[in-house]
Simulated assay, not measured.
Amino acid sequence: MTTTRLTRYDRTMLRLMNDRRGAAWYATAARRRLAVTAHVALTLAIGGLMTHLFLAEDEPLWTIAVMAVLLLPWMVATGVINGATRGLLELRAHVLDERQSAERSRVLARAHRVTTLLLAAAAATLLVTGGIAGDAPKAYAAPLLIAVLVTHWVMPLWVAGWLAQDEPADEDI
């Protein structure tokens, strides 16, 4: 940590992100990867429902209800990943130590590369689909752009959760 004084918010977030009561949820690499996989699946499901809501002709209120129900496990999975990474992406930079700062930089760089590839794939998909159909699929452009934006937003969390290391074992001296 730097010599910058921690605010009450910083101390609260640091205490919350280092709370080990939920450690059983992310104690092993398999559990952390399961949490990331569940988060990705829930994000895709919520995104698919939003796309359906956006493209549907009638007003399907059931999609809003299902999205609201899926939001709770999505938030739990987010908390599990944040706990597994000890708040690597949630804590302010001046709260992190040198190792955490370096890890945050690595995670953000890798997430940026993955998101760039996904953005290129989305653009290529729209261009190819438009070339085959003879016209760009305008109805799908907005949902696809929103999906890429959401992916860009959560990709660092997914990468950090996927790459999180096991806690060092306590040694009795």
Rank of each mutant, 00 (worst) to 15 (best):
M1N: 10
L6P: 08
T7F: 08
L14M: 03
R15S: 15
R15E: 12
R15K: 15
R15P: 15
R20S: 01
A23D: 10
A23M: 05
A23S: 14
A30W: 06
R31L: 15
R32M: 07
L34G: 15
V36T: 07
A38V: 08
L42V: 01
I46H: 11
G47V: 06
G48C: 03
G48W: 00
M50D: 08
T51F: 11
F54L: 14
E59S: 14
M67C: 12
M67S: 09
A68N: 03
V69C: 02
V69Y: 00
L71V: 01
L72W: 08
L72I: 06
P73Y: 03
V80Y: 07
I81F: 09
I81L: 07
N82P: 02
T85C: 00
G87E: 00
G87N: 14
L88R: 12
L88Q: 12
L89Q: 07
L89C: 03
L91N: 13
A93D: 15
V95D: 06
V95A: 10
L96Y: 04
D97M: 15
E98W: 04
E98A: 15
R99I: 15
S101W: 00
A102D: 01
S105K: 13
S105R: 15
L108Y: 04
A111R: 01
T115A: 13
T116V: 09
T116N: 04
T116I: 08
L117Q: 06
L119F: 12
L119V: 12
T125E: 11
V128H: 01
T129M: 15
G130V: 03
I132R: 02
D135I: 12
P143N: 03
I146R: 09
A147D: 11
V148K: 02
L157V: 10
W158S: 02
L163P: 14
L163S: 15
